[in-house]
């Protein structure tokens, strides 16, 4: 939580324009830094990987590289939904490794100034780990939750990787 605030503040202080990729997940809109997103692809065949965390859907072949696929819905404890035409995988660079995240739909790339990012309010949408929320962007028509994916695996998972 405190980390998220620090990130938000440092962005704010710079006040420069940042670009975000916005995506939808169960009625809500989220944003991630465009520089972290490598590509956005449609759902390929996912190979299930046994004995991993429940939110790991499996692995896919991304042009000869095998990358893990994580279901954002499962990760955030949202109701599962059928994949449809809008479903996309956002391939992102998380701590130097490529990972795919399944989202309901990817909408657009938006530009905002750092000052628009507000620290997230204490009570945010259900189930989402507070740690990976870097802030909230409040524009006239919409509310965007800014995610920091590197923080997503910070807590218990990192510990898990470390022990592995």
């Amino acid at each position: 939580m405190s980390n998220a605030l620090v990130v938000a503040k440092s962005d704010e202080s710079r006040g420069e324009l940042i670009q975000l990729v916005s995506f939808n997940l169960d009625q809500e809109e989220y944003g991630v830094d465009v520089l972290k997103v490598r590509e956005i692809i449609r759902m390929p065949t996912v190979t299930r990987v046994p004995n991993t965390s429940h939110y790991v859907d499996g692995v896919i072949n991304l042009r000869g590289k095998v990358i893990p696929i994580i279901s954002m819905r499962k990760k955030f404890g949202l109701v599962e939904a059928e994949n449809d035409k809008q479903t996309r995988i956002m391939v992102m660079d998380v701590d130097g490794e490529l990972m795919g995240f399944i989202v309901d739909a990817v909408s657009e790339v938006i530009r905002i100034s750092g000052s628009e990012i507000q620290p997230s309010p204490a009570v945010v949408a259900t189930g989402i780990d507070q740690e990976c929320i870097a802030g909230v962007i409040n524009q006239t028509e919409r509310l965007l939750v800014l995610l920091d994916l590197e923080k997503m695996f910070s807590s218990d998972e990192k510990k898990l990787f470390g022990s592995l």
Binding site: V49, P50, M99
Partner: peptide, 27 residues
């Protein structure tokens, strides 16, 4: 042999993955 990356490394009983002729991943 393709590595599964750090995130999925060391799953009991899985040594790695490979890509089959149809482009799918097999463990």
């Amino acid at each position: 042999i393709k590595s599964l990356g750090n995130y999925l490394a060391k799953i009991q009983g899985i040594a790695g993955s490979t890509i089959l002729g149809d482009g799918c991943v097999a463990l």
